[in-house]
Deep mutational scan, measured.
Amino acid sequence: MADQLTEEQIAEFKEAFSLFDKDGDGTITTKELGTVMRSLGQNPTEAELQDMINEVDADGNGTIDFPEFLTMMARKMKDTDSEEEIREAFRVFDKDGNGYISAAELRHVMTNLGEKLTDEEVDEMIREADIDGDGQVNYEEFVQMMTAK
């Protein structure tokens, strides 16, 4: 299944994987998964984290390695993001709930994920998604960005 991913997608997933893999040992533990999910405003229980890991832990060693992570991402993409997942993601970014993602809100979430971005990089990300040019990202623009192939 992971063989249907483009090189660009694999590179993006590698970057995402390293955000989860806090200690850089090449595997994601339940603790690391929990840290990232909490930084995104989720509050999973230990059991939920274990279930999430077990779902993709092909070799049964209790952690997720990069090939397992790729399989999980490929699977998720095949079920292409349901509207509800996209709306949920939008809410994570839209901290003040005004229906727009500002540069400050984007920077806040990315920083929580451990991504240190310059102001230019954040502005560039907003510009790429900002179709109507108002300097922020509304829900429609967010959907376009998330579903762009």
Rank of each mutant, 00 (worst) to 15 (best):
K76P: 14
G135I: 03
D51C: 00
D3V: 06
A47Y: 03
P44T: 12
M77L: 12
E83K: 10
Q9K: 09
N138S: 13
I64R: 05
F17S: 07
A74K: 05
K116F: 03
K31E: 14
D65N: 14
A16R: 04
I53S: 06
E88N: 15
E124K: 12
D123N: 12
L49E: 15
T118L: 08
E83A: 07
A129E: 03
G41M: 15
E8L: 15
K31R: 11
Y100S: 07
G133C: 01
G135C: 12
M72A: 02
L40W: 04
T35P: 09
D51K: 03
I53A: 15
D59E: 13
V137F: 07
L5Q: 08
A11G: 09
T147F: 05
T63F: 06
M110Q: 04
D23R: 08
D132A: 09
I28D: 15
V122D: 06
S18L: 13
Y139F: 13
G24H: 06
H108V: 12
Q42E: 05
D79P: 08
Q50V: 03
I10R: 03
F13N: 00
A11N: 13
G135K: 06
T118M: 09
G24R: 10
Y100Q: 15
S102W: 15
F93Y: 10
T80M: 12
V56N: 03
Y139E: 02
K78G: 11
D94P: 01
F20C: 13
R107D: 03
N61M: 03
E105S: 03
V143T: 00
M37P: 02
P67S: 10
L40M: 14
D21E: 14
K22W: 01
D96S: 04
Q9I: 07
F13L: 11
G114R: 06
V122H: 06
I28L: 10
L117I: 11
N112R: 15
E88K: 11
D123W: 07
G24D: 12
A2D: 14
D96T: 14
E15D: 12
G26C: 10
D130S: 09
Q136D: 05
G99H: 05
A129F: 01
G114M: 07
D96Q: 15
Q144V: 07
D119E: 14
G114S: 00
K22H: 03
T27Q: 03
G99L: 01
K22A: 14
E120A: 14
L117A: 09
R75Y: 12
F69R: 01
F142H: 06
G62M: 09
M73I: 11
D134F: 03
M72Q: 15
A148D: 06
L106T: 04
L106I: 14
E15H: 10
G60Y: 10
E84R: 11
S82I: 08
T6V: 15
D57V: 09
F90P: 03
Y100A: 07
T118I: 12
Q50H: 11
M145I: 07
A104L: 06
D130Q: 05
I64C: 13
A148Q: 15
E46P: 15
E32G: 12
E48C: 07
E46L: 08
R91M: 10
N43H: 14
S39L: 14
T45D: 00
G114I: 07
D81W: 10
V56G: 13
G133L: 03
M125E: 03
M52I: 11
K95P: 01
V143P: 14
R91C: 03
E83D: 07
G99K: 15
M145V: 10
E83F: 03
E115F: 01
D3G: 11
E115W: 05
T118D: 13
A74N: 12
E48Y: 11
M146F: 15
D65I: 06
L70G: 09
D57H: 08
D134P: 09
E141V: 07
K31A: 07
I126A: 05
A16S: 09
I86C: 06
E68C: 09
E48P: 01
G24K: 12
P67E: 07
A74L: 05
T80E: 09
T63C: 03
D119G: 11
F69V: 08
I86F: 08
S39M: 10
L113N: 03
A2S: 10
T6L: 08
H108Y: 13
Q50I: 15
I101K: 00
M146N: 01
I126G: 00
L117F: 06
D123A: 08
G60N: 14
E84F: 08
G99E: 01
G99Y: 09
E83G: 12
I53N: 04
I101F: 14
I101A: 11
E121A: 03
V56D: 02
D96G: 12
F93G: 06
E48A: 04
E55C: 04
L113S: 08
G135T: 03
N54C: 03
L117P: 08
E141W: 05
G62I: 07
K22T: 09
M52Q: 01
A103Y: 01
E68W: 07
G114P: 05
I10G: 04
E55F: 02
T35V: 02
Q136E: 12
E120I: 11
T80V: 06
N43E: 04
T35G: 03
D79F: 08
R75N: 01
K76W: 14
L70N: 15
K116Y: 04
E46T: 02
T29M: 05
L49N: 03
E8Q: 01
T71G: 07
A16I: 14
R38I: 01
D25K: 03
F17L: 12
V137Q: 05
T29E: 05
D96V: 09
L106K: 03
I53P: 12
G97L: 00
D81N: 09
T45S: 10
G99Q: 03
A16F: 06
G99F: 06
G41K: 05
R127Q: 07
E7N: 01
